[in-house]
Write a protein that binds this DNA or RNA. Sequence first.
RNA 1: GCCCCGGUAGCUCAGUUGGAUAGAGCAGCGGACUUCUAAUCCGCAGGUCGCAGAUUCGAGUUCUGCCCGGGGCGCCA
Length: 605
Amino acid sequence: MQSHNDTTAKSGDPVAVLGQRIQQALAQVLGPEYADADPLVRPAQNKAFGDFQSNAAMGLGKKAGRQPRQLAQEIVDALDAGDLCEPPAIAGPGFINITIRPEALNAMLADMDQEHLGVEPLDRGHLVAVDMVGVNIAKAMHVGHLRSSIIGDSVCRILARLGYEPLPQNHLGDWGLQIGMLIDYVMQEQIDLDSLTLPDLEVAYRESNRRCKENPEALERAKARLVLLQQEQPAEIDAWHKVTRITLDACYEACDLMDLTLTRDHERGESFYRERLKPVVDALLERGIAEESEGAIIVRFPSENPSSDASGEDDEIDEEQSPLVIQKSDAGYLYATTDLAGIRYRVGELGAERLIYVVDARQRDHFKKVFTAAGMAGWDVLPGRDDSERKAELIHVAFGAVCGKDGKPLKTREGENVKLMDLLQEAVRRAQAIVQEKNPDLSDQEKAEVARAVGIGCVKYADLSSQLGKDYVFDWDRMLAFEGNTGAYLQNQYVRIRSIGRKAPDDVNPAAPFCIEKPHEKDLALTLLRYPTMLAGVGRTLEVNKLCQYLFDLAQTYSAFYTECPVLKAESPALRDARLRLCNLTAAVLADGLHLLGIRTLERM
RNA sequence: GCCCCGGUAGCUCAGUUGGAUAGAGCAGCGGACUUCUAAUCCGCAGGUCGCAGAUUCGAGUUCUGCCCGGGGCGCCA
């Protein structure tokens, strides 16, 4: 699974460099078979103990039958790291506490202070398909699309930053009975599609639904219309194109407001797979993976616990996992069929090596089954490789519900889904009011820019900053309060740094050597140096909230530095320049990270 | 009935293959502004980590059972 090895020591990462040295010591003390044991280097949990700690001696001591504390001593004796740190201390049951030397920090910071900020991208050509947004025809985007859009976009940005080539896939709901109902309705009523707006279309959609529910004849007509559409009759196709266009034009307004990188080129709706559904079913039947059952075609899954265990207490037959239906008894296909066709296309034709689905957590079981079925068919095997066994990674990035303060999924007072555009516009409006109050001197244009960046940024940050799989509480006051863990807090820290930069005199040396001495400087340096490894981890696990957490740490650490360490009024020009460079590096990391979250930075706010 | 996710401070949440005294933010209380943007910072207070067992030098973290909340469970997407 873990095809991406990030243990290669990056010269600018103290954890990696120290880890490497400790591994050498481990090999020396315990033998070469321990050369790749995890050195378990972590930032010190308590500053009083030093900067870093290694917990390796305790676990390995048990494993190798050695006394942990004594083993720790032997590791320390064998450790060759005098250029990096003070002589380590041993504490408790066998913690190795490490204090890094300022010169080492200065060198690592200089190493990091380049355009790529220490992040080493992969070679080109690693395609990743990201299934996101998932707009439905004839419906405006609502809160349900918020998370898929925001998370998917951030995932794309992060992967691109790490050298992957993300391919957003807007999996439109554009092919099914509901389209047949809608098209039949607008054609029956002779509605002029050229002057229709999305709200009109939504009304028509609801009306067509209602009719089909009440009137069997209407339903039959809709089904017949769907057949005509699927036969690609010109009139039906024309109507379908038009309703699709109306829907998407409106949806892209919301996408633009959210600054999504996704474009029209990334439309891969259900209709895209329409010719690929039958082959999916045929192939699975042919290989005996799928079978007929009660008129439908299904894929069964072997039970995970093959038989009752040794205890024999539980002699009931294991409940079989429910099967995956890929063709209905009326010969119609389902979204599982489309998803399987999608995997086949994305892996087999595009050659994507990771397929990421940013979809509601309630579909966990669905994706688990679809992924398993795809694996059974071998559709996750990457084509055209020497090592033909290399498999694409199939990942469901499941996200929880957006809830109101009452803890229940967010709805309007009328009990309807909140429209995404309304929500975004309210965010901007609320931010506008706050800018007006906090900084009335800005020009109107600047205020509008700040309101947009802050309003949208806060919504995004609130969405990305807790564990994605959990529900989260959507609370305007908390997310827009510019105190605490919010997007605006981060944006403001950036503004404060840039303000110093603007006021710096002309004679500063931008390449002045770093000079880490004070505790707050050291904290900031250590936090900055965590960035590349942190980001690589997020690229692997897609835990975007950890990027948020890191940026908040960085911003707070910077703030403490800012209050304690004068920059422009530093005691000497050399120190001033060194601190200014530290500020600039912090700004660069903050801007980079915010950009990866899809949050705009500002020069003033 | 079965499966999945969650339960940590008054509220919203972190907690990295098991590590030292469980951390933030908000709210509360007390301080710091003729500023390098106070949209900030510093300090105080606040906890039976849902409950009970098990594993071990050590458990919020692993295992088992239970309680509570949410979600899912063959022809909707």
